[in-house]
């Protein structure tokens, strides 16, 4: 592991559970370090806990889901222990978030100008006019034409892509240290997806901002991420530098994910390869590796005991196959 001097956010053994009698775990002992100016992509299928882990960072989990253990360290403080007011000052100011669905993530009956300026005013003492001027600058920067006029308009008067641009402007208006993007392009159509990704990447580089990028789309990852973390059934399965992961995937699940990507070069496959089966529903009682039931290389041991997360030259993997080799 690289030295943590550059670390800006450190997650240690994060546990998130559904607040029912069984305390169904959805994120199980997730740990990682986000470095300054770097982009970490968290990849996984739906239900693997990737969005919930992201919401945990700002402690905005939906009712009924709670953090049951671990630490999230930002600036020498554990976010999970912060009192309400300090937490509020952190949200949107130091750590900002862009959500999946721009159609529903903006208040439908509030002008976007108000929604932008209120964010600025919640964290900084400045006049309304200055906040407005700043909001207009940001809107221009994310590519909303006629920004001054459109400040007075409501979300329904914008297209989906424009709304996501507005969400990005809102997240960036206080120059946060960390941007968390929770599937920011999933709800948009493909041509817009690329534009939005490019925009986020550009702004991230300009500002030397760190980012956590939540996605189920590996194709996106290769363009934006420095590091990739593969999540499955609430566990970290593999984590490596982006180029390393694409070149030498170690976990059968990661291999399966990469194998199911369409490639423009090479021979056209008869049928796109896919991973058989479905991800486990949260709460499925299990011993051993959560991927074992779908794993083509599963051994007896895989069903009996959870493999440890081991690391070699910065490449982490949780698989018995790798243990044997090591």
């Amino acid at each position: 592991m690289t030295a943590c001097s550059n670390a800006i956010l450190k997650i240690e053994n994060l546990q998130v559970s559904v607040a029912n009698a069984a305390q169904t775990p959805v994120v199980r002992g997730l740990s990682y370090t986000l470095e300054k100016g770097k982009v970490l992509a968290v990849v996984g299928e739906s239900g693997c806990g990737k969005s919930l882990h992201a919401l945990s960072i700002l402690r905005i989990l939906p009712p009924g889901v709670q953090i049951t253990g671990g630490h999230i360290i930002y600036g020498e403080k554990d976010i999970l222990q912060l009192p309400a007011e300090e937490l509020r000052q952190l949200r949107g100011h130091k750590i900002a978030m862009v959500f999946q669905d721009p159609m529903t993530s903006l208040n439908p009956i509030r002008t976007i100008g108000k929604q932008l300026t209120e964010t600025i005013l919640a964290h900084q003492k400045c006049s309304k006019l200055r906040a407005q001027a700043r909001a207009i600058r940001l809107l221009k920067k994310v590519g909303i034409p006629d920004a001054r006029k459109r400040m007075k308009e409501y979300p329904f008067q914008f297209s989906g892509g424009q709304r996501q641009r507005i969400m990005i402007a809102m997240a960036l208006c206080l120059n946060p240290d960390i941007l968390i993007a929770d599937e920011p392009t999933t709800a948009l159509d493909v041509t817009i997806q690329a534009q939005i990704l490019e925009l986020i990447k550009k702004l991230q580089m300009q500002r030397d901002m760190s980012a956590v990028f939540i996605t189920h789309n590996l194709a996106i990852v290769s363009n934006v991420a420095d590091e990739v973390l593969v999540l499955y059934g609430g566990y970290c399965m593999e984590k490596a530098r982006c180029s390393e992961l694409f070149a030498h995937p170690l976990h059968p699940y990661t291999k399966g994910l990469l194998g199911s990507l369409l490639s423009l070069s090479g021979e056209k496959p008869q049928r796109l390869p896919a991973i058989e089966g479905y991800p486990p529903a949260p709460g499925t009682p299990e011993k051993g590796c959560p991927f074992a039931p779908r794993c083509p290389q599963a051994m007896e041991k895989c069903f009996a005991q959870l493999p440890p997360l081991s690391e070699q030259a910065g490449h982490q993997v949780r698989c018995w196959l790798q243990e044997k080799n090591a």
Binding site: L55, L58, I60, P62, P63, A84, R88, Q89, L90, R91, G92, H93, A96, M97, F99, D101, T104, S105, L106, N107, P108, I109, R110, E118, T119, A122, H123, M167, M170
Partner: peptide, 27 residues
């Protein structure tokens, strides 16, 4: 209160009374 925009309002760091009255309440 369960809608996404309320989550956004919280994530922006608005004070809780603004989230409840200005955002959820008005809707």
């Amino acid at each position: 209160l369960n809608k996404d925009y309320v989550r956004t309002a919280r994530a922006k760091g608005l004070p809780e009374h603004a989230v409840i009255y200005r955002h959820a309440g008005k809707n």
